[in-house]
Amino acid sequence: MEALFGETFTFGDAIFQILGFLVLMWLLKRYALGPVMDMMEKRENHIAEQISSAEKNRQDAEKYLEEQREAIQQARLEAKEIVENTRRMSEQQAEELKAEAKREADRRIEAAIAQINQEKEQAISALREQVSTLSILVASKVIERELDEQEQEKLIQETLKEVGEEL
C-alpha cells in the first residue's frame, strides 16, 4: 500500500472526486446533455413522423391513381357504349324510316291503282251507258229516216263521229 498510495491514504480525494463526478453528471444532464438529447429525440420523432406521413401520402396517391385509372376505364367503356347505342339507334331509326317510306309508297301505289281501277270501272260503265244511249239514238235515227244501206252506213259514221267528238 505504501508503494502504491504513497505515505498517506488520501481517502478525502476519493470522496471529493465521486461527489464532484456526480455533481458534474447532474449539471451536464441539466444544462448540456439533457437539452441536446431531448432535441435528438424530438428530431428522431419528427423524422419518423415525416417518413410515416410521406408513406401515407404515397399510399393515398397510389390509391387515387388507381381510382382515377378505374374511372377513366369506366368512362371509356361508357363512352364506347354510348357511341354504340347511338349508332344502333340511328341505324334502327334509319331502317324504320326506310320501312315507313316504303310502306307509304306501297300504300300510295296501291291507292293509285285502286283509283285507276275505279276510274276505269266508272269510265267503262259510263261508256256502256253511252253506248246503249247511242245505240238507241242510232237505231231511232235509222228507223226515222229509213234510208238505204249506203246512207245508213254514212249516217252511222256521222253519228259515231258526233258521239266521238262528244266523248
Binding site: 481517502f11 478525502g12 470522496i15 463526478f21 451536464l28 448540456a32
Partner: peptide
C-alpha cells in the same frame, strides 16, 4: 486521521470537472 486530502489531486479533479462542464456547456 482518515479524512486526508491531497490538495494537488483536489485541484486537478476540480480543473478536469470544470473543463468538462464548461466545454459541454458552451457546446450546447
Amino acid at each position: 486521521e482518515w479524512l486526508a486530502f491531497n490538495l494537488a489531486n483536489i485541484f486537478m479533479v476540480t480543473v478536469s470537472l470544470t473543463i468538462v462542464f464548461f466545454v459541454l456547456f458552451f457546446m450546447s
